[in-house]
Computed example of a mutant assay.
Amino acid sequence: MDDTIKVPITFEKVDDDLTCVKWTTWLNKTTSICQARETERFQLNHAPFDVCYFNVSCVYNFVVKDDGSRRYCFEIFLTQVKSFKMATVNVNDTSPVSLIGPLDSHRRRPYAVWSTINGNAITLKEVGLRHGFWKSSKTYASIANLQPPLISCLLWIKFKMFGVGEISALNHMADLLARQTHSDVQFCFGNGEKIGGHVAILSARSPVFAAMFQHDMQESKTRKVVIEDIVPEIFKELLHYIYSGRCSTPLTEGTAQPLFVAADKYDIKDLKEDCVQYLLPCVTVKNAVELLIWADLQSIDKLKEATLDCVISNGKEICHQEEWEKLMKSYPDLCLTVTRRMVDIAKFPSSKRSRTEFKVPG
């Protein structure tokens, strides 16, 4: 790889716990059989004595389509290491080693990681018994006929501070739910499934549960709660978050929306924010209208603005979609908002980008 064509990694601090890392690189020549890998390293400075070191790798190969274009298969790996003196980790090795050292003091670690490659959204999952080793599922993307081809990878890294005492306390809390010990309330589902909970913990984390169990309501007398509008898998994730502060599995586009709705019903604000932060980089030309409608119905202003920007920036393509017809027929007020924005941009092109441009591939 010629170092002269490498683009430096850039960072954007979204808030104290969320950082967006932009990594742009040129792909080497490879075949559909042989894999190639691009690797870079970077550090994030959260405080004078809180520096995090990372290796990021993109493993890829491609297949040639009938029209001669290349369809690439990607996997992304993010590794938090003690220092840059550590060798790059073998991405095929999942043995139980610690990459960031013992948690004998508070240390900032990634809590959730997700990414887009040329606009294609993927989620990274912490692998096996390792701490600080994140791996994505395989994703496919067509790349324009560039010589050599260019990829732009955005990594969103959400951090939390972890310490031994904190982890131990959270593990004990989660064990109460996992082992179903000392339960004093039962959640009942339509399929006959039941799961136990603990009134004190639920009430402390949710004002809705607190009101349910503290007042003269049926649930406080029977200690049974019938769940009719949330599927068991989503409700279990909600409970896991209430007890441990994190989901048992990484968020996906399929779970983020129903989890937000469940968290909104029981007023779990931090889970709602996690779902929104996950969905923001998932906005694409294909799902922008659908997410716009959903964000409007849920009154999520931040996601609504992101989807509006995407729809307006890609209006010529989106107006031919079936989702656009649905927007016009079923949500005329929202359609009017989009149309007025488009007209304003056409009239005043100099103010076209008063907000951050949101141009994404389909």
Rank of each mutant, 00 (worst) to 15 (best):
A174D: 09
K286Q: 06
L78T: 06
L103I: 15
T181Y: 01
A87Y: 07
S136P: 03
I293G: 05
R107W: 02
A263T: 03
L308V: 14
S32A: 11
N120P: 10
T4M: 09
R340F: 05
T307F: 04
Y72K: 10
C188M: 13
H106E: 14
P102T: 00
T30K: 02
D333S: 11
I345Q: 13
P207H: 08
I234P: 05
F187I: 06
K125H: 03
V276G: 03
Q218G: 01
I143Q: 04
I117N: 11
Q298F: 05
D344Q: 06
E126I: 10
L27S: 04
S32C: 04
S206R: 12
Q180P: 03
H198T: 05
I234K: 02
K194P: 02
G196E: 09
V185C: 11
T255S: 15
N45K: 12
C247W: 02
E237Q: 15
L259Q: 06
P148Q: 12
T284K: 02
D3T: 08
I227F: 06
L27D: 01
T181C: 01
A178N: 10
T94H: 15
V343A: 04
I201F: 08
T24H: 07
G254Q: 15
G315S: 10
G163T: 07
E322L: 15
A256P: 07
K236D: 01
E273M: 13
D267Y: 00
R71Q: 09
A112T: 13
W324K: 00
W156D: 07
